[in-house]
Amino acid sequence: MATFALAVFLLLITPGPGVLSIAGVGAAFGFRAGLRYLAGLFIGTNLVALAVVSGLAALVLANPVIRKVLFVASTFYLLYLAWRIAFAGSRVAFIEAQSQPGIGAGLLLQAINPKAYAVNTALFSGFVIFPDALTVEVVVKFLIVNAIWVPIHLLWLWMGGVIKRLNLPQKIQRVINITMALALVGVVALAIIAAF
């Protein structure tokens, strides 16, 4: 079980669309605003885990057309999120506090987040804990994953919020937002490279 928990920690702490976007939302809009987005990510990641455990994800992703559509959708959505984060600290008129990503945006990100599917597949299909009790194993794994997922994502959101509260000059805030956005674009680039 300790090996499983360590694997969960390492897979979740590494930068991916979820942690990068939650840190970016925290830096751009603040901790409190980021909690709604975090709730969406949380619900979404658990729905992805359920899809993986039930076999629904494998069934859907076995279709190459659906796979390509989801890949293109995730690529464009991550680029859109990167754009929103990069320009959140600017004076662009149509990016105001009312357009902060909320629960729906977090749900959507996880639904099309390739890392969410890969991580959940690795965690739920590997690391056998209770070989003779599949239901117990799945429940225990959900508990462990969420017990690690929540603090890690709260930490990333908090770090983003700290950057926001530092009340840095607009130029530095913009550099931070652009850096986080570029990191998300880097994840997209890696996903595209891995797909070909």
Rank of each mutant, 00 (worst) to 15 (best):
A5K: 09
L6S: 10
A7M: 11
V8S: 12
T14G: 10
P15Y: 09
G16R: 05
V19I: 05
L20I: 00
L20C: 02
S21Y: 05
S21W: 08
V25N: 01
G26S: 04
G26W: 00
A27L: 03
A27K: 00
F29P: 00
F29M: 02
F29V: 02
R32E: 01
A33V: 07
G34P: 04
L35S: 01
A39V: 12
L41G: 00
L41C: 02
A51V: 10
V52E: 00
G55H: 07
A58F: 15
A58M: 14
A58K: 15
V60M: 03
V60K: 01
N63L: 12
N63M: 10
V65R: 07
I66F: 13
L70Y: 04
F71A: 15
Y77W: 07
Y77L: 09
L79Y: 11
Y80W: 15
L81R: 09
A82K: 04
W83P: 05
A86T: 09
A86V: 04
A86M: 09
F87R: 08
G89Y: 01
G89D: 11
S90I: 04
V92K: 15
A93N: 07
I95E: 00
A97W: 07
Q98Y: 14
Q100C: 14
I103W: 02
G104M: 11
G106P: 04
L109D: 08
N113V: 00
K115M: 10
Y117P: 00
A118C: 04
S125H: 12
V128P: 06
F130V: 11
F130T: 02
F130D: 07
F130N: 07
T135Y: 11
V140I: 15
F142K: 03
V145H: 05
V145T: 00
V150E: 01
H153T: 02
H153V: 07
M159H: 06
M159E: 10
V162C: 11
I163E: 08
R165P: 07
N167T: 06
N167E: 13
L168C: 02
L168S: 09
L168T: 01
K171G: 13
K171T: 15
V175C: 12
V175T: 14
I176V: 15
I178M: 12
I178D: 06
M180R: 02
M180Q: 08
L184D: 03
V185Y: 11
V185M: 10
I192P: 04
A194D: 13
F196V: 13
